[in-house]
Nucleic acid binder design. Structure first.
Lengths: 346, 346
DNA sequence: GTGAAAGCGCTAACAC
DNA sequence: GTGTTAGCGCTTTCAC
């Protein structure tokens, strides 16, 4: 693996040209009418000398790196790691590698990472952005850098994108709670407060409630900074449960929030859903065996990843993207379990 | 972003040599006594023409790609995605990108991925292998390809490696259960059956039990194939609970197994720990708020990742690795929650 | 059927 | 202080 045998070494030791060897390696020998016998000689020499093409050099020469980038806020979040896995599978099947980057929701870091990947000539990127508007990506789109925005999107953006129906999902959650006669709600989101998914979920929830003439008091609209979710949720819940006036249900806006919220509700010995019901955005296998089991909005992660990769590949291959696929919004499901049921329904 | 301005373009439009531009770009201008004024001219031209160095070309020239590979069985498994995140953070801080590969526990796929990454000139790899012996890696070590084995290791291997004390962790679990007077145990592992971590955990558990003259009946030594965990666990548990003779406790050997096992125990309406206790290897935040809360062996993921990256970096930089750091084994903790307590202790 | 030579974008001796 | 030149390992046009 070490000796760094090059194509030239093979050619020399065989007394043939580099062209010949290159042709054989790339299966273009037949097309060029290279004799079977020569081909065999080359092939066995390659094996003999344990030659491995320098893919980097080839990529450099051909302007193809066979690498794509995946940029998300945090690869250890299961939502993103599942996306990563799917993207990786598709990528691998097309001969691509994927480079991962976690932005920690820091806009500057995200930009830096995108620039870095671009300078390294990745052929495309799939991005769940932390930015607060699409001008950066519109420029990128105009510049011709293949990319697709995933999960988090903006109105009026030019880049191909695929997301889920956050608004509709939140609406489902709200309706489900309203249908059971609940009237008092709290909502826990993360900040920064320009994340599109979070805002769409908030809108969906809030608007649906207001159609029923219900508002969420501002003290129950909770924002936990991305890097301080744990402590924020803990102190907020502690304070909340010191008061007499409690919400009937809490809507947690992503999987981390749901988990952390449940952890501290448990610590506080709050009965779910008797004292307070809960429903989260983004499902987890664990929600099946907590007691109570946890209701949630389930996202079509596999489909999301598949569509995203497909859109990226089309750009890389310069295949036209049908207009109706340029911006895809996927439906979500509500999984009703015990945590969101009115106590008397249990 | 598109026009592909090259260093040569800058040089030409400025009427200077490429060398000059290169020196300025790489902050070597001062050392070479390039006048401040020329440097400024170059810099502003670079900005004016929106030039971005082709990092690939540079890497190609210098034999440095600033890329490392991370190879695990499944990046969507939280254990690995947390490792990935940490590795990525360290890598980024050293100017490295990380390429992820999921092997699905398929040895051939793993080898293919390693070859692929090698041919792409990654500078090093961190690998949680699915292979059943270390000869492949010993060859790799001899060949000089920087790499470190993480999590799964082999006795007598040459490659630098870092793992956790699986044997000790399983022993802790066994002792904890034995201490409470339990005598009948089941164990659920994944196959293939050459995965070192799994085997060490089995050994630790089984040996500790046998010191107390207890054996696990073979019908209670369960193996679920990696890609069929769900169905295997389900049918196994269904069958198990049709019988009168039940184990007092189940030891699940990784986070997936624990989750899936809990899911189906819940489906079967089994009372934990009254009917059967459970303790898992690998912790999860969710174990805090299930009811009962779930006991587990907690692994030092951050430390594991840090040590691994450090060992890799040393190899890349050709720094000597102190002998006692060549093979690192990290201690684990037992987190005792409700699921593993004798009913009368609750 | 096979080879020579140019060049992808960059860096680094070595000149001048 | 600045420029010339020779590659890194590969593919590809064009020639023979």
């Amino acid at each position: 693996m070490k000796k760094k045998v090059s194509l030239a070494d093979i050619a020399k030791s065989l007394g043939v040209s580099k062209t010949l060897v290159s042709l054989v390696i790339n299966n273009k020998a037949d097309a060029h009418g290279i004799s079977k016998e020569t081909q065999q000689r080359v092939k066995s020499k390659i094996r003999e000398m344990d030659y491995h093409p320098n893919v980097l050099a080839r990529g450099f020469r051909m302007g193809k790196t066979n690498t794509i980038g995946l940029i998300v806020s945090d690869i250890s979040n299961r939502f993103y790691s599942r996306i990563a896995r799917k993207i990786e599978d598709y990528a691998w099947s097309y001969g691509y590698n994927v480079v991962i980057c976690s932005t920690e929701e820091i806009i500057e870091k995200e930009k830096e990472q995108i620039y870095f990947l671009r300078d390294r000539q990745v052929e495309g990127m799939i991005i769940s952005t932390s930015q607060d508007n699409c001008s950066f990506f519109n420029d990128m789109y105009v510049s011709g850098m293949p990319h697709v925005l995933i999960d988090r999107v903006f109105a009026g953006m030019k880049s191909p994108n695929v997301s889920v129906d956050n608004f509709g999902g939140a609406r489902m959650a709200a309706r489900h709670l309203l249908n059971q006669g609940m009237k008092k709600f709290a909502l826990i989101a993360i900040s920064p407060d320009h994340i599109s998914t979070i805002n769409e979920r908030i809108s969906g929830f809030v608007e649906t409630l207001s159609e029923a003439d219900i508002n969420i008091p501002s003290k129950w609209m909770i924002r936990a900074p991305f890097d301080q979710i744990d402590i924020t949720v803990r102190t907020t819940l502690q304070k909340l449960f010191q008061e007499d006036d409690l919400p009937e249900a809490i809507f947690t806006l992503n999987n981390n929030l749901t988990a952390i919220c449940l952890k501290y509700l448990t610590d506080l010995k709050v009965n779910i859903p008797q004292q307070v019901a809960i429903i989260g955005f983004d499902d987890s296998i664990y929600f099946n065996f907590t007691r109570p089991t946890i209701s949630s909005i389930q996202q079509p992660i596999d489909m999301l990843s598949e569509k995203a990769f497909d859109l990226l590949l089309k750009q890389i291959q310069k295949t036209a993207i049908e207009p109706h696929l340029h911006s895809v919004k996927l439906p979500v499901d509500i999984i009703i379990r015990e945590s969101s049921l009115k106590p008397d329904a249990l």
